[in-house]
Design a protein around this nucleic acid. Sequence first.
DNA 1: ACCCAGGGTCGTC
DNA 2: GACGACCCTGGG
Length: 296
Amino acid sequence: MHTGDKIKMKEQSLIIKNIKSFEPKQVFECGQCFRWNVEDDGSYTGVFGENVLNVKKIKDELKIKGICKREINEVVQVYFDLDRNYDEIKNILSKVDKNIAESIKYGEGIRLLNQDLWETLISFIISANNNIPRIKKIIDTLSKKYGRPIKWQENTYYTFPTAEELKNVTVQEYREAGLGFRDKYVADAVKKVLSKEFKLEELYKIENTAILKEKLMELQGVGEKVADCVLLFSDLKRLDAFPVDVWVRRVMKELYFPDIEEKKLDKKQIQELAKKKYSNLAGIAQQYLFYWKREA
DNA sequence: ACCCAGGGTCGTC
DNA sequence: GACGACCCTGGG
């Protein structure tokens, strides 16, 4: 087990007034992240990178506090995607058709996070044929065992372990951490990243989303769906990626293919329609649809 | 008790 | 391209 130095940083806080398109419940429970948890007061606390933050929304004011490695306003600006104009995106998408317009009304406070590529990759490898509570539990266990502690307000939080920190973890130890059959996939990703056989930083240089997706799928346990999630939810931020899971398949069948049996509905058909309708914003459209269908 | 599904992927045919 | 297997857990 890693017993490195505790990360010590000063506490910081930030208030953002007149915040638009930011509803904590929707941001943190639309399926893009697994390390944000709701508190008794309705606020959310999460760990990302070497930061622990608590986010509370009161009316149209966002109160953020916690400890950050760098200046909190810079960290927040990037992680919460504050440079993107979601009003404009929602306007464009709402004009596509009534269905997406209704889903946007339902989840108008959704916003995509710029999450660390490594953490997103491993998290979504773990997500395969799994459910959200268990995914969260596994990621929590990995972080507690192999990440570094950050103390804040009586509590200890743990960073998501780097590839380096997972260097000596065996497949059996992953199994004991609850990963199930995904144990070997994570071990494989760690090995390939550490040996530079797979270079994460090179991925940012690839412009074409399809090529980038192929590259991600070279890794064990990364199929189309996982690759699409990494493209959309990590800081690779490919808004044209359209992950199709059981929920999205369900909602797309209901809305656009009512006469086709769900099992016979080809994923290619769904993605072609998504591209045609939502173009380079398909990924964001997917989040509105996913949240809508899953909550309702 | 038993079965099923869950933000799928892989190996085999 | 279709099909079954796969770790594990919570809910019916």
